[in-house]
Nucleic acid binder design. Structure first.
Length: 559
RNA sequence: GCGUCCGUAGCUCAGCCUGGAUCAGAGCAUUUCCGUCCUAAGGAAAGGGUCGUAGGUUCAAAUCCUAUCGGACGCGCCA
């Protein structure tokens, strides 16, 4: 429909297609038509007022069948498209609706979730996980071949701390019963010990005390391959992995590859050594290696010759490119790491890796609870598992109240996913129980509910009667629904382009709203336009299902 | 100090990249109405905003530019 208008205008207004595409807009109200062309741009060339130009077009343009009428209103040329033809198009859609293949033969690697071993997943982690999963689904939907990687933080000082704590205070029974809680207890206990020895007046984060030293020693032992320490590390990884899997199962998030950061220590160091030989990096007197970026030293190897955070990332990036030859790799992490990734990309480029141009960092804002940013160190966190349990319990309650056949897990998980995805990635997210447990209005359950209602109609009707369809005299709610459905493919494409699933989340809500209005004004079964409306409901259902699929939210026929 | 992000109704957020039309849109909360009818996790309606502030660019600014205030964050041989 839009392309018909664009074609028409290229001829009439003598502008290029992409120019028109840019200017053509959707008017603020449907009284002004479905598309609108503001004539300001032409007024200079034509030496006429935009009002006059619009008037001229309105009188002279010959209309193709897809367009019902055009009107000039001030400087605007308004197009009213033929709703019957649009409706016909919408009734034809199938389960592939919205798919296209701009991504054919293109490979995308997405690095997301990436929790730290030994720490539990709390609500601060859900964003990377849910966002990354959704972005992967969107890419796949558009024909890309995407690979999801979970890059586990299995090395670093927090591991050293845990090993110390594990040796001193482990409660074996507790670890068996609830590995996540026990590891958290150990971690918090260590940190409180460490903190108790901080000297007043000095920057606490930078202080090394007896406890910090112990943790560093363990880390060194681990690097040297000490058997006993390695065993503990393995135990911690296993226990921790159990906790992660539980969450991923609930969220139905899958990865193509799960790999520990520690794997890339040697690769990273080798690259640094080579760069050093080529004079691309410099050495400090004490042996630490650095690269100078904008006059600042960025260390890529410590003085004791062990790897730093960025060393692993350098190794991992190079190895991944070797393995996947990706067209794009996206890191989905907290915005606080923006500088880190900018530096990583610069370093790779300087070291001669041209694929560095294919790397993208998708930063997202912090999830806050009250005014606090969640810190594992203090232990005052809300576990992701608990959040999910609570929303699922609420869903269960609601289902029981209604005596229907809903799936509490799908509803509860859907509520959380929707809550996370409806905000643009760059925005900070304010987590509150009130919002998480609100199943009305702009929420996941509202949308799932619309789907269930639609299913219910179709179930009751039994079968479609495709032969007897007449499309005429559509009412406003039918037109709105048709138009909304028709928008879907465009929305998917912009969500992909902008790496922003909230576009689809908002769309799902708008679509559901359009359906619910239709539902109230237009009875389906027994009505004289039953056959048409039934097919419309079916198209709605197909579209909503696809939209929710892209968000990782499941639908059900009853709830 | 340098840098990044955010500031739109009481609260949570769309819209800003790619400036346009009458009242700047939703949801929650508040007030009112809708149940013999496909699931009321629904629908209809009301109140509520000088789009942080001040300049500028433009025929036109929530949207672009500059400055400024407020908030979050980054600048470590932590990850």
């Amino acid at each position: 429909m839009k392309d018909v208008i664009i074609k028409l205008l290229t001829k009439e207004a003598r502008l290029k297609e992409d120019e028109i595409e840019k200017i053509l807009e959707v008017p603020p109200s449907s009284e002004f038509g479905d598309y609108s062309f503001p004539c300001f741009v032409l007024s200079k060339r034509e030496k006429k007022s935009p009002d006059k130009i619009a008037e001229h077009f309105a009188q002279t343009i010959k209309l193709p069948k897809e367009i019902e009428k055009i009107e000039n209103k001030g400087p605007y040329l308004n197009f009213f498209i033929n709703k019957n033809i649009l409706a016909e198009e919408v009734l034809k859609i199938n389960s592939n609706f919205g798919k296209s293949s701009p991504g054919k033969n293109k490979k995308i690697v997405i690095d997301f979730s990436a929790p730290n071993i030994g720490k539990p997943m709390h609500i601060g982690h859900i964003r990377s996980t849910i966002l990354g999963d959704s972005i992967m689904r969107i890419y796949n939907f558009l024909g890309y071949d995407s690979v999801g990687i979970n890059y586990l933080g299995d090395i670093g000082l927090h591991i050293g701390k845990l090993i110390v704590a594990y040796e001193l205070w482990l409660d074996k029974e507790a670890l068996k019963k609830d590995p996540v809680q026990e590891l958290l207890r150990l971690y918090v206990k260590f940190n409180s010990k460490e903190k108790s020895e901080i000297t007043e007046g000095l920057e606490e984060e930078f202080q090394d005390n007896e406890w910090t030293q112990k943790a560093k020693e363990k880390l060194k032992l681990l690097e040297l391959g000490d058997k006993k320490t390695e065993k503990i590390w393995e135990d911690i990884r296993k226990a921790s992995g159990k906790g992660f899997d539980k969450v991923y199962d609930l969220l139905k998030v899958n990865f193509n590859e799960t790999v520990g950061q520690s794997e890339f220590s040697e690769h990273g160091k080798k690259i640094v050594t080579n760069a050093l030989l080529k004079g691309l990096a410099k050495t400090e007197k004490d042996g630490a290696v650095y690269v100078e970026i904008n006059g600042q030293k960025k260390f890529i190897l410590r003085s004791n010759q062990t790897a730093s955070y960025i060393t692993y990332d350098i190794g991992a990036a190079v190895e991944r490119y070797k393995k996947y030859k990706f067209d794009k790799m996206i890191y989905v992490t907290d915005f606080r790491q923006s500088d880190h990734f900018a530096q990583l990309f610069t370093i790779l480029k300087r070291f001669g890796y041209d694929f560095s141009d294919k790397l993208i960092h998708l930063p997202f804002g912090t999830v806050k609870f009250g005014n606090e940013i969640i810190a594992t160190r203090k232990g005052d966190i809300i576990l992701l598992e608990d959040v999910l349990k609570k929303t699922i319990a609420k869903a269960d309650e609601e289902i029981k109240k209604r005596k229907t056949q809903g799936d509490a897990e799908k509803v509860g998980v859907g509520a959380i996913k929707y809550l996370v995805l409806k905000s643009a990635p760059s925005a900070e997210v304010q987590f509150s129980w009130e919002q998480a447990l609100n199943f009305e209005g702009d929420s996941g359950p509202y949308i799932q509910y619309s789907y269930a209602r639609a299913s219910s109609i179709i179930k009751k009707a039994g079968k479609f009667n495709k032969s007897k369809i007449k499309i005429e005299n559509l009412n406003q709610s039918e037109i709105n629904l048709v138009k909304k459905i028709y928008e879907f493919p465009e929305r998917v494409q912009s969500a992909c382009k902008e790496l922003n699933p909230s576009i689809i989340a908002n769309y799902s809500f708008e679509l559901s709203k359009a359906f619910n209005e239709f539902y109230h004004t237009s009875p389906v079964i027994g009505d004289k336009s039953e056959s048409f409306r039934l097919l419309l409901v079916n198209s709605f259902r197909t579209t909503l299902k696809n939209a929710l699929y892209l968000l990782g939210i499941e639908v059900m026929n009853e709830m």
